[in-house]
Design a protein around this nucleic acid. Sequence first.
DNA 1: ATGAAAGCGCTAACAA
DNA 2: TTGTTAGCGCTTTCAT
Lengths: 353, 353
Amino acid sequence: MEKDGIKMVTIKAVARLAKVSPSTVSRVIADHKSISAETKERVRQAMAELGYYPNYIARSLIKRSSHALGLILSRSTESAFSNPFFAEILRGISKVTQEHQYALVLSTAENYKDEAKQCLQMIMERRVDGLILLAPRVNDELILELAAHKHPFVVVGRVNGLPQHYAVNNDNIQASYSAVRHLLNLGHRRIAFLNGPAEYTFCQDRYQGYCMALREFGLEVDERYIRYAQLDHKDAYKLGKELLNLRPRPTAFFAVDDLMVIGLYRAIKEERLNIPEDVAVVGFNDDSFAHLLDPPLTTVRIPIYEMGKAAAETIIAVLDGKKVTPPQKILSSELVIRGSCGAKTPSQLTAEE
Amino acid sequence: MEKDGIKMVTIKAVARLAKVSPSTVSRVIADHKSISAETKERVRQAMAELGYYPNYIARSLIKRSSHALGLILSRSTESAFSNPFFAEILRGISKVTQEHQYALVLSTAENYKDEAKQCLQMIMERRVDGLILLAPRVNDELILELAAHKHPFVVVGRVNGLPQHYAVNNDNIQASYSAVRHLLNLGHRRIAFLNGPAEYTFCQDRYQGYCMALREFGLEVDERYIRYAQLDHKDAYKLGKELLNLRPRPTAFFAVDDLMVIGLYRAIKEERLNIPEDVAVVGFNDDSFAHLLDPPLTTVRIPIYEMGKAAAETIIAVLDGKKVTPPQKILSSELVIRGSCGAKTPSQLTAEE
DNA sequence: ATGAAAGCGCTAACAA
DNA sequence: TTGTTAGCGCTTTCAT
């Protein structure tokens, strides 16, 4: 009856006080229709009197559902949390889990293997009913395994090599294409691309958009102007320097994540070059600090919060046995033009600012 | 045997394959000493063959422990996540929960009442074994209730009116005192204080440090120069404007959170005043963007990550039945001097920069 | 060293 | 409408 000095008020105790059977109490909890109003009232009275809370663990065991969602942050813990993308997606997810009374179990993993292990563990151990996966990789083995075992999951991003699955994504190719086209329209021809780790599908997609735009303008994709950096400002600083030392020097930069722009700006300023006069810059994500940079950053705004909401709604609907159509949702982004690329061309103007 | 098309591999199935009883399998899982090496081997073989994972729910039910920690973000969801403080504290917490194989259940609440309800629910429903509470209020009823019911919890911040409890905090009074003293040493005498909501104990403490410093310099605390704002840049902008319109105008600002400084900077610049020549500014938290502001912000750096770690370690130790001494830990902070206050005084120099 | 049996707190047939 | 009964998958005495 005691644990840590806390009295365990069970359904039995309530039943005893209300002079009914435990199953009747259970039915009152579930607000079952075939219970007389007076019994309901009496049972509720007893629950209130005893301060009864249903034991979720016991309920989960018999219902075979923990009513919880799992979310794993991979990459090193350090960079995962510091990226505002994470805060935004989490905000969207938790908004929905809260509405649906789902618990959200958060975990972190140092590397991909660890992430896979933890995901599998969470779901196999029945700690969670479904998973939300972020930043899928090219040929993501974890995702393939989850799919093979028919575990419920939704991916935020694009998955390759899997016909049937639930996913929420933004229009990376299109967004990247628009961003680079913006630079091309401003007259830039040597546009460096600060990409992220090539194993992520979103990096692949943004690369594809970059290539599309260049080719549309009859330009070759010159791999010398492309670098693959970590999604933080330090690596971007280093690789930004490398790119700035190329001759002929790129006149514009397209960075796959705003966080990189911080390092890139520093690199550019250290070379005594001016933004946007000497070098134009476009970022990606429209992180909250983007408008605070000097000059304010032109960047692609993606609906991160909405993607988090959509992902959570999708997986919850799936778990509720509802049909989710279409299984893959693409949310659109917009280019937010600020001061890091110089004069605006009318065709590229957006509502913003 | 089936649920969502997923085979449930139970301890029974393993027992059958290994030709032992379920209890023996259970003992192997717990690595019980009195099991022969060969049986252990055989059982482990069977577990591997069947891909067995223990059902955490079932184990929790009998062990009366979910091996999970609960964390609630109060304030409106919008501002909670966007504050880098949250990301940092979460990083520290999850680092520790991961090490100890604890699950971390995250929840959000729109307001204080909702937060209290959710905390109580999480712990009463046995979803979590203990709670980590952030940003305690003056006479925090939730905390008093949790304490009255002897629920395990740890607070990040200072709690008043409760002799025995676990808490981790930084030296707010001292930190605030140092920050204001820095401004006083630079010659400032009219120092405005952009405080946060007065119901938080940390705001109270920082106010106290502010007063201490002023009084030490023989100055009166002038309430006209103090405002209570939300912890975001919008409100800070508005109240910053108000303070700038006072005559005589304050020559320096001390803001209780770096996020406010963003709004404050905008207000100052709109008044065509220069930082630090016309107005000096000191912030609090050393958020990641603080060094990116123009001019880079002088601010108090508090060890948020370490506080998160310490909080998680404390509550886990408590749950493990260990003695935690001292129950209240205070981590120290440092003033990081950058460019928002003008010339440095030698006595205030820190290692940074 | 291992097995049998009881039961954690709850829900859900099946009766009545 | 309500009670009885049998578990959910696991751990843990108590036997052997």
